[in-house]
Nucleic acid binder design. Structure first.
Lengths: 345, 345
DNA sequence: CTGAAAGCGCTTACAG
DNA sequence: CTGAAAGCGCTTACAG
């Protein structure tokens, strides 16, 4: 790089003091319009850009947000959860709109990342995205809390701090899936996905699903639930176990699309057809859902809105402003995997 | 946040000077081991972290790389090219391994981003990822060059600066596709994808494809080429045009997987079957390729290696070290869309 | 409306 | 091996 111009160079050329240059560049109203224009003109000419490090150091603010993606240690290193990947786009855009830079990093739940962003002043706050065991997660969250780090996370609730998390109305999503499957005339249901305290989101989906079925008079005992983390492999395995156990089943609701894809493979491996023999509904609406075979019906989470909200709420936390909302309403997307489209209404 | 400790606090507690603290923290060998240990211990106790802004300002180095993703203005805002998305993972990891932070941003080709990273000292260099018209792109590249910005980009060549780009051996990839299709006994070929100066990568793929076919005695005139940018829609449209024009065709090589998926839809829309009536081969091996219907045979680009290389080479550029390599060898992944697996050997 | 001055928290010659 | 001092390039009270 050529030697960079500083605000002193501009000051010299404009015949004003460096403080005035600094003010003019930030369009301070206290500075004379003519002076301001002259400074801007010279800055443009010199290709001058404010040094962010100096500016941040002085302001004690970085205008940068950090996005931390957790990889589930149980899956192999290859793929990032596609649901989070699709959120990345909207988070970046939301940051850009608000003049924030975005630092992105992948972390293992086990790493010692909690102090590496805000404490180093690299970022003013952190966005946490990641499935993984919630109970492990919680420990980290507590540390962040203790350090008074500004953060916001997707999905998991932070005990006593509802404002720190943004999430889908997972229970309602599960209900939607149950109601739709019921409406299509299915009788024998199953749920595949973890449904315990370690996976609060999946658990809510399970609960919503069973809410709907129970409302229709189906007993909880009649709804087998098989554990699976959010991967195809886990979904396939759970399905084989379910099928081989001889449960009568004609409709499966899966805690995520990745699981659902594995479930459909499992069903097909046993010589059965989707949706003719067993209907399948997923959750997330990741890009591959529409390419699955058959195309997967699923509960869609609006990732654009989610990303916006994550950034927005984090900024509000940083600026000590009240949070307006932190829940997103899911909707059902009907494709082929759940059977005939129901009659209207 | 609580008041953060500074190196002066540590100095005071350790009974040494602040300069010694600074040196000790960076494990300078000039500092006595005992002193070093004591300083480290106190730092840990105070939860001390070096202020990046101060450190960067002083060092005139940010240890940060910026990743700029270009959205093709012709596609709608929804999806980021999945090929780049899959590269993101390996880029992040490669950065982490080398102690670099990664700033991520999406840009329109039209935006004025070229000075916003290195000039502001937010990043030491830039990684450019994006399809789009190469001729528009070139103009930006020239500006970066003029400013002596450190950057590296995927795919497009930077005139006179072979080291600034990292790419697949696209021509070889095209050849692989042609040879495989030939080996399967196909006779009537077509290429779908832009093949002009505006899309140098696609053009190389086309050239490699025709190289193979010409080697087998097929005349270039017998290989219809229909333009398409890298989207399903464009692929589908081009296919309908191709088919409706009455060209005899039993094998189509597509410039990208996204195009190939659209091509298969187009073929099916005209009542033909893949691969029975027409074989299809894509390029990239994006995640959905294996979920396509039928699963797409394609030329795979090793995104992990690509990401590594991008980061590695950029760092070498920044440090004035010579670049070792900037080309990646593609390989063919055979699935269902191209017909019967050939006999071994 | 403008300027002189302090200071953000480090790193690194320089001197010993 | 250690310390005193300068300085990275800004922003922002403070004074006028």
């Amino acid at each position: 790089m050529k030697d960079k111009a500083t605000s002193f160079d501009i000051a010299y050329l404009a015949g004003v003091s460096q403080s005035t240059v600094s003010r003019a560049l930030r369009d301070s109203p206290q500075v004379n319009k003519e002076t301001r224009d002259k400074v801007h003109a010279i800055a443009r000419q010199l290709n001058y850009k404010v040094d962010k490090n100096a500016s941040n150091l002085r302001k004690q603010r970085s205008s940068t947000l950090a996005l931390l993606l957790f990889e589930d240690p149980t899956t192999d290193e290859s793929l990032i959860n596609p649901f989070f990947l699709s959120m990345l786009g909207s988070i970046t855009r939301a940051c850009a709109q608000r003049g924030q830079d975005l630092l992105v990093s992948f972390q293992q739940l086990s790493d010692d990342w909690h102090a590496d962003y805000e404490d180093t002043k690299k970022a003013d706050g952190i966005i946490l995205l990641g499935y993984g065991d919630y109970e492990d997660y919680e420990e980290k969250l507590d540390k962040l809390l203790a350090q008074e780090t500004h953060f916001v996370c997707w999905g998991a609730e932070v005990e006593g701090h509802p404002d720190f998390s943004i999430r889908s109305n997972n229970r309602q999503g599960g209900r939607l899936a149950g109601e739709h499957l019921l409406q299509l005339g299915h009788k024998h249901f199953a749920f595949i996905g973890n449904a315990s305290a370690g996976s609060p989101e999946f658990n809510q989906r399970f609960l919503g699903f069973t809410d709907a079925l129970q409302d229709a008079g189906i007993h909880l005992k009649q709804i087998p639930q098989y554990n699976a983390i959010s991967t195809e492999q886990a979904g396939q395995l759970a399905t084989l176990n379910l099928l081989d156990a001889g449960h009568p089943v004609d409709a499966i609701f899966c805690a995520s699309d990745l699981i659902a894809i594995g479930v459909m493979q499992g069903i097909q491996l046993r010589g059965l057809k989707v949706p003719e023999d067993i209907a399948v509904v997923g959750f997330d609406d990741i890009p591959v859902a529409s390419y699955a075979n058959p195309p997967l019906s699923t509960i869609q989470q609006d990732t654009t809105l989610a990303g916006e909200m994550l950034v927005q709420n984090l900024l509000q936390l940083i600026n000590n402003q009240p949070i307006e909302t932190n829940q997103i309403e899911p909707k059902i997307v009907i494709r082929k995997s759940c059977g005939t489209t129901p009659s209207k209404g």
